[in-house]
């Protein structure tokens, strides 16, 4: 795994340098969206892989992050970074609140709890939309929306892509750092048995809440970045079904590996864009997408990331260490 981490950092560096230069205007935007959703996917993937907990509200939480980001952008003169951080933190707190019932739930029930949250948020987003510079608490004006400030180092679209990739990399490293330190060991123990974890002095409540908070943080950052990229958000992006779909793709991508989250985001944003670019009818693309999803769930236990590892392992002539 250490090896794949090093490769990851190298690949990220290559992407940061090359993607903004090589991609055209359309693809710069597609890759920016992909980076935003990769952050959220990483959040969902890691609580699933480390704790067996399923969040079907990840995209809805991105919406919360995006809302906070836009609200602050239009209400204050704070710099981009402050707004982004606030978006991450507020979403993180919401994630932790979500974790309180989660402490007592497992498996499907927990997943459904998060789905109910996603369903409720969908209704709020539709009825209230996202702040665009209007007055009042909800900040929605009906005319031309006010501008969204971008970071100093990301004024143009290509520079913003570079910035987003770096934030994504930082998010991934944050997870990796946790995995290697005390929280990672605590999570592993909790996953085996909470009783055992408590017996060995692990604060189960703290670490579970922490994990959800971390996952929410990544979703919030992703939502804030997306808002900065588009300048405004629309409720259609954050429907409950999108949250379910993102989690399905997390399973397909492979939840246990960092490149699984990247694969998830690529499937979620790059694949539909490619099909659209090739002129495939949107409805037919949906059929293809659904079929591919079913196929991957049936055939790939560790997702695409697992298959990549298997392939690399076969190349090296031995099985890779893919233990959790």
């Amino acid at each position: 795994m250490r090896m794949s981490g090093v490769i990851g950092v190298i690949l990220l560096a290559v992407a940061v340098v090359l993607l903004p230069v090589l991609a055209g205007g359309q693809w710069v935007r597609i890759f920016t969206s992909t980076a935003c959703f990769a952050l959220a996917a990483m959040g969902a993937a890691f609580i699933y892989a480390r704790l067996g907990m399923v969040s079907l509200a990840q995209v809805a939480l991105m919406g919360v992050g995006g809302w906070v980001f836009l609200r602050l952008n239009h209400a204050t003169a704070l710099p981009f970074e402050a707004n982004l951080l606030a978006a991450g933190l507020v979403t993180s707190v919401l994630g932790m609140l979500l974790a309180l019932p989660a402490l007592r739930m497992r498996g499907l029930y927990l997943a459904l709890m998060t789905l109910m949250v996603a369903g409720a948020l969908e209704i709020v987003f539709t009825a209230r939309q996202f702040p665009n510079g209007g007055t009042g608490f909800w900040g929605v004006a009906t005319s031309f929306s006010a501008t969204v400030r971008r970071p100093l180092l990301g004024q143009s679209d290509p520079a913003y892509l570079r910035y987003s990739l770096l934030v994504m990399g930082a998010g991934f490293l944050l997870i990796e750092a946790h995995r290697r330190a005390a929280p990672g060991r605590a999570w592993a123990l909790i996953r085996r048995s909470e009783a055992a974890a408590i017996a060995s002095g692990v604060n189960v409540t703290l670490y579970k809440t922490w994990a959800f908070g971390l996952s929410g943080l990544l979703a919030g950052l992703g939502g804030g970045l997306l808002a900065g990229s588009l300048g405004l958000l629309d409720a259609a992006t954050f429907r409950a079904s999108e949250s379910v779909l993102l989690f399905a793709l997390v399973v397909v991508g492979g939840a246990r590996f960092w490149f699984g989250a990247v694969a998830t985001a690529v499937l979620y944003r790059v694949a539909p864009a490619l099909l659209n670019n090739w002129g495939v009818d949107a409805d037919l693309a949906l059929i293809l997408f659904g079929a591919a999803l079913l196929h991957a769930v049936i055939t790939a236990p560790d997702g695409i990331a697992g298959q990549i590892l298997g392939f690399v392992g076969a190349l090296r002539g031995r099985m890779p260490g893919v233990r959790p």
């Binding site: 055209g24 205007g25 359309q26 710069v28 935007r29 969206s33 679209d157 588009l230 864009a273 659209n276």
Partner: peptide, 14 residues
């Protein structure tokens, strides 16, 4: 909305 923004980028910038 994202596809809309991408489409505009493609048409206007590319």
């Amino acid at each position: 909305p994202e596809l809309a923004a991408q489409a505009a980028s493609k048409l206007l910038k590319d």
